[in-house]
Simulated scan of single mutants.
Amino acid sequence: MTKTAQPNLYTAYDWNVLADKALRGELLTEAEALSVLEADDDELLAIMQAAFRVRKHFYGRKVKLNLIINAKSGLCPEDCGYCSQSIVSTAPVSKYPLLEKTTLVDGARKALELKVGTYCIVASGRGPTNKELEQVIEAVREIKETMPMKICACLGILSEDQANRLKEAGVDRYNHNLNTSEGHFASITKSHTYEDRVNTVDKAKNAGMSPCSGCIVGMGETNRDIVDIAYSLRELDADSIPVNFLNPIPGTPLQGLKELNPRKCLKVLALFRFICPSKEIRASGGRELNLRSLQPLALYAANSVFVGDYLTTEGQEATLDHRMIEDLGFEIELCAL
């Protein structure tokens, strides 16, 4: 007796059905979410077109630019397996204490010249000391007084008082990535917990700062883990979601791990657009390495990118990002405070 072939669940969807659900604010089922990640590559352009319907509804053709300054490098006691600055890393990275106020302010001026709307002050470590916090606050105050610039701080785990002080100084957004699903978290770091990260995002939100939290894909997680972190970030109500793609830096515990290809990365970005339709989705760290020649397609799902370098890895020339945006017929969204 001949066995009847069964349809492939993960290519059976009309991707516009998922876009319609997203536009109505309805949550994709787990099966629907997995269908995006496990779809045949022949479905890729149809998936991206459906994701673009959602992206265009909320953001049109505008692209938000962000720039990172590595305000404090190395010297971190945490054991995050992906990070070249962690205590378990042997990667040769620059190590220096928190930059002086003048350097942080000068970095904001450079960001403004590059048409950046959000300037991200990022420091390694478990969390800021009072002295470090005050240095950041002084820089933020000067930047806000002299430039039309949104500021995001990423300083690690915060207390309620620290969060309130940052907000009072003028910090618009606070970033603290969940990084991966709760179930996969202990495989990546054990020196702090998933709940520690959720609590910090909540403290930033309660202080009145816009919550920014995202993930890193390609760290040995399953597709269900990716779906779980997307669901978690929706529930957390993060306004900005940086989607990072692992750069397996030599000297880190995840060195040599190469699970991603450009098509998978694009499907991940589309998934986040479907699950968090109205949020800023940012194609972030590792996009140049992992998306390669397909980088422009990322902006059919994402509406935000980093320009310039990351923390310890090089990014793409900002002029190339400007050209990519122009070639797509998209438009840089300038800061409107």
Rank of each mutant, 00 (worst) to 15 (best):
G125E: 10
G127F: 04
G127P: 02
P128C: 02
P128V: 05
T129V: 05
T129M: 06
N130Q: 14
K131G: 06
L133R: 01
L133T: 06
L133G: 07
L133C: 02
E134M: 08
Q135Y: 02
V136P: 02
I137M: 00
A139C: 03
V140W: 07
V140K: 10
R141V: 08
R141M: 11
R141H: 08
R141S: 03
E142D: 09
E142F: 03
E142Y: 08
I143V: 11
K144H: 10
K144N: 08
E145Q: 14
T146A: 12
T146G: 08
M147Y: 04
M147L: 13
M149N: 03
K150C: 10
K150L: 12
K150S: 12
I151V: 13
C152G: 04
C152P: 01
A153P: 07
A153T: 14
A153Y: 06
A153L: 13
C154K: 03
C154Y: 10
C154Q: 08
L155E: 05
L155S: 08
G156K: 01
G156Y: 00
G156M: 06
G156V: 01
I157A: 00
I157Q: 07
E160S: 14
Q162E: 06
Q162A: 09
N164H: 15
N164A: 15
K167S: 12
K167P: 11
A169F: 08
A169M: 07
A169Y: 05
G170I: 00
V171C: 11
V171G: 05
V171S: 06
D172S: 09
D172L: 07
D172K: 12
R173N: 09
R173F: 01
Y174A: 01
N175Y: 00
N175K: 02
N177P: 01
N177W: 02
T180K: 07
T180W: 03
E182D: 13
E182Y: 07
H184V: 11
F185H: 10
A186N: 09
A186R: 14
S187T: 12
I188T: 05
I188H: 05
I188K: 03
T189R: 14
K190A: 11
S191C: 07
S191D: 03
S191G: 00
T193Q: 04
Y194M: 12
E195V: 11
E195D: 14
E195T: 12
D196I: 09
D196Q: 06
D196T: 02
R197D: 10
V198S: 01
V198I: 15
V198H: 05
V201C: 11
D202Q: 15
D202P: 04
K203W: 06
K203I: 11
A204V: 09
K205T: 15
K205L: 12
K205Q: 15
K205V: 10
K205C: 10
K205F: 14
K205I: 07
N206Q: 15
A207K: 08
G208Q: 14
G208M: 13
